[in-house]
């Protein structure tokens, strides 16, 4: 339990650093650390497959692309346009409303008893695969088709030639 609190603290700490960091590249690096703490959370839950997939997909691929894009567009303080006061005030009000909503919903929520998994080895690859390909086969296939169509759509949009006539 203590490990959990320590890792949870680290997750929150790094995610606060993500939004307070001045330099966008530093921000991404803190985001990488945040995702790394998520991986540790999954390992603590004995969800090995989810942990390693989070590690490969988020840390190893998506955030590399984030970093790649940020390095290419090279944001820094000089080139960033200053925001007007109106936008800042709107941001503060929006943030406060969101905070109030979260606090209200947390107060409405009763503390639930800790859930004990019937089968603690559910997160291992073998069991996860069996559940995924037996009970949840249709949603699994549909979501993969959805991802494929999104990918094909993105490629189509990117390679669309402007009409020359």
């Amino acid at each position: 339990m203590n490990t959990f609190y320590f890792i949870a603290f680290l997750s929150i700490f790094f995610s606060i650093l993500v939004i307070t960091a001045k330099n966008p590249v530093h921000s991404i690096l803190y985001l990488i650390l945040t995702f790394f703490t998520f991986t540790i959370h999954y390992i603590l839950l004995n969800a090995q497959f989810l942990a390693i997939v989070n590690f490969i997909v988020y840390m190893g691929a998506i955030l590399v692309l984030f970093l790649y894009t940020l390095m290419l567009i090279n944001l820094n303080k000089e080139s960033e346009p200053a925001k007007s006061n109106l936008v800042k005030i709107a941001g503060v009000i929006g943030g406060c409303c969101f905070l109030v909503t979260i606090i209200a919903s947390l107060k409405a929520l009763g503390a639930s008893p800790a859930v004990v998994l019937k089968d603690p080895s559910l997160g291992l690859v073998k069991n996860l695969g069996k559940v995924l390909f037996n009970e949840y086969l249709l949603p699994f296939e549909i979501s993969s088709v959805l991802l494929l169509s999104a990918m094909v759509g993105a490629v189509l949009l990117a390679t669309k030639e402007p009409k020359t006539t």
């Binding site: 090995q48 497959f49 390693i52 997939v53 590690f55 490969i56 840390m59 190893g60 691929a61 590399v64 291992l124 690859v125 073998k126």
Partner: peptide
């Protein structure tokens, strides 16, 4: 028991 994926993660 996810050894291959671990290697893959380290590579990435």
């Amino acid at each position: 028991n996810v050894g291959v994926l671990y290697i893959f993660g380290v590579v990435s």
